[in-house]
Design a binder for these strands. Structure first.
Length: 593
RNA sequence: GUCCCGUUCGUCUAGGGGUUAGGACUUAAGAUUUUCAUUCUUACAACGGGGGUUCGAUUCCCCCACGGGAUGCCA
């Protein structure tokens, strides 16, 4: 990796999202893989914003992408936010370029100008469908029937343009040609060109479509490796054809199409009794919300249906299939259900499966809807990223927990999976707990302080806080759980575990605690070993079962029945506080039983 | 519908013509522990189905089933 400077500098990858909304974790993973690959080969990693659709532009989306990547802890070497040799990196700022190249293609006979209105195209397709064509499209078989520069006389075309008539540029896809291309993760893929329609290259607003902009920019920016989602696989042959038409085939980038990230398996839902019950009620009302026309009466029917279908995974799978015997309202519900339960991970899956899809919290600028992100939920970026990296890639050994450097070292596109992966929150949480336990003192303080304040406690010293961390880090998955589970480390307990109280808080225990206070008071030096010794000597001398005293002691000091070692806690909070708490408990709590 | 891609424990996956099919998460049991965790040990659990090719197939080929994607003047 350290040698071959020439090879190293020649790699260029890119991440090219469109700012149509918050970046979902699939996008982050694509960005990550582009980064890992680029970094591994010492190359350039470009962030290019594909904002060629004016209608779908969402303010803030671009910042969201950059913030997300920053939070995850990796970076681009070129891009909208940092500049670079190929600036600008926003496609809306490069539009003359695309028009120029589209023109070049038209002149060379690889593309043509078309004047058809959407309605006319629609009519053509409808007509073909009616006469039995399975896949009606604007292509070699139909382009001669339409209004374009292939069918119109040149003067006519000229006149129309002069008159200001709207037009687009379409790519002239060759007829019936096998297009074969190599994909780094899927090997050879073969598609016949008749499957591809004459894609629009330049829209009537003068802006390019993805297909044109992407090919032109990857060429201009000297991109060597295009790493993108599987949804692009079917249009890759088109892109190849375009590189060919431009005469750029020699320098065409290599392609790597990544598998999708899927929703969790719905049969898991069926097997979980609690979740199942929830879903039987929730799904019909969610459907009702989306389809108010179904009518209130639907809710019950929907629940009935689910109850039958969700008996077990097999009935579930069968029951969700299309069935001609279904009543119309159930048929609609079913197809809606399929969309909700299967397929790519989507925004709805936070609600449905408890799986957030955004790295950061996103507030929809139009609706005000808040979609909570991994960061705000308390996930550590390194845990999130490590888990995400493994959803579609694996180094091929048993390595799972990896630092960024290890991921870079081990990464290869050949090891990227072909098949999609389902998101598993349990495993992410395991990673999270692991990384939390290995956090540095500085990070701990940085993360814990706001949580302590948010819980309404006074902020203790850093030293004390690190003591808290030491006692609690093995017991939590999120930092916010610390003030929640160990409130007694920040103030004397207000509430006491009733169950525990009824089991062991009696006259006998109270007397023992009074004895213990006496012994503790005499003890000058206050270390864990010493006070444990006092405790043990006492119970041995009085032949008491250890739990008989330990439980009431813990209860008096913490109010709880579980937690770190009680002597550790006593030392942390100090001698005075320990004694105060025992005394106060003895005053406040009446003996039970 | 048509085209493209995929299919190993419940989940994420390793492997690859002859393996006791390996690891991780989850679940369960045990050890440690004053409790709760952590940690450690153990257990449960998989090659979608059918045909080939082969002495032998989970691995290669074909078909089917299932899952996914694409089929826009969206990306």
């Amino acid at each position: 990796m350290q040698n071959t400077t020439f090879q190293m500098s020649s790699i260029v990858t890119r991440y090219a999202p469109s700012p149509t909304g918050p970046q979902h974790i699939g996008g982050i993973r694509t960005a990550l893989y582009s980064y890992l690959f680029g970094k591994k080969h010492g190359g350039e990693i470009i962030l290019r914003i594909e904002d060629t659709d004016q209608n779908r532009y969402v303010p803030g989306a671009e910042e969201f992408i950059i913030n997300s990547v920053n939070w995850c802890g990796f970076a681009f070497t070129q891009g909208v936010h940092v500049g670079g040799a190929h600036a600008p990196y926003r496609q809306s700022e490069r539009s003359e370029l695309y028009a120029k190249y589209a023109d070049q293609l038209v002149k060379a006979g690889h593309a043509y100008i078309a004047f058809d209105t959407p309605a006319e195209i629609e009519a053509m397709k409808a007509h073909l469908s009616a006469t039995g064509t399975v896949m009606p499209q604007y292509d070699a078989s139909t382009r001669h029937l339409m209004k374009n520069s292939l069918t119109l006389a040149p003067e006519e075309v000229e006149a129309k343009i002069k008159a200001g008539e709207a037009y687009i540029v379409r790519f002239k896809v060759p007829e019936n040609e096998d297009v074969k291309f190599y994909d780094l993760v899927r090997d050879w893929v073969n598609i016949n060109s008749s499957q591809i329609d004459d894609k629009v290259l330049l829209k009537s607003d003068g802006l390019p479509t993805y297909h044109l902009a992407n090919v032109v920019d990857d060429h201009e920016m000297q991109v060597t490796h295009v790493i993108r989602g599987e949804e692009w696989l079917p249009s890759a042959p088109l892109h190849l054809l375009m590189y060919r038409a431009f005469g750029w085939e020699d320098t065409m980038p290599a392609f790597a199409h990544l598998p999708l990230i899927l929703k969790p398996d719905p049969s898991v839902l069926v097997q979980n009794k609690v979740r199942k019950k929830e879903m039987i009620v929730k799904l019909p009302s969610m459907y009702l919300e989306a389809h108010p026309e179904a009518g209130e009466a639907f809710q019950q029917k929907g629940e009935q249906f689910l109850q039958q279908v969700m008996r077990d995974p097999v009935t579930f799978q069968k029951g969700l299939k299309e069935d001609e015997k279904d009543k119309p309202e159930i048929a609609d519900f079913k197809s809606w259900l399929r969309d909700q339960l299967y397929g790519k991970l989507s925004k709805r899956d936070k609600e449905l499966h408890g799986i957030p899809v955004f790295p950061l919290t996103w507030t929809d600028p139009e609706t005000g809807d808040v979609n909570v992100g991994y960061r705000e939920l308390g996930y550590l970026p390194e845990a999130f990223l490590n888990y995400l990296a493994l959803l579609g890639w694996n180094p091929g050994n048993d390595l799972e927990l990896m630092t960024m450097d290890e991921m870079i070292e081990n990464f290869s596109l050949e090891k990227v999976h072909k098949s999609p992966a389902k998101f598993d929150l349990d495993k992410l949480n395991h990673f999270q707990a692991h990384y939390l336990r290995n956090l540095s003192a500085d990070r701990w303080l940085e993360l814990l302080k706001p949580e302590v304040k948010a819980a309404g406690f006074d902020l203790p010293s850093d030293e004390y806080l690190l003591g808290v961390v030491d006692k609690m880090k093995e017991r939590v998955t999120f930092v916010s759980e610390i003030p929640e589970k160990a409130d007694y480390l920040f103030q004397a307990p207000h509430d006491f575990d009733q169950n525990m109280l009824s089991k062991g808080w009696n006259e006998e225990a109270m007397q023992m605690l009074r004895d213990l206070i006496g012994l503790y008071e005499k003890q000058e030096s206050w270390t864990e070993m010493e006070i444990e010794e006092i405790f043990k000597t006492y119970i041995e001398e009085n032949e008491i079962g250890i739990g008989k005293l330990m439980t009431p002691l813990r209860l008096a000091i913490t109010g709880k029945s579980f937690g770190p070692g009680i002597f550790e806690i006593s030392v942390l909070i100090g001698k005075n506080e320990t004694l105060d708490r025992i005394k106060s408990a003895l005053e406040r709590l009446q003996p039970v039983g």
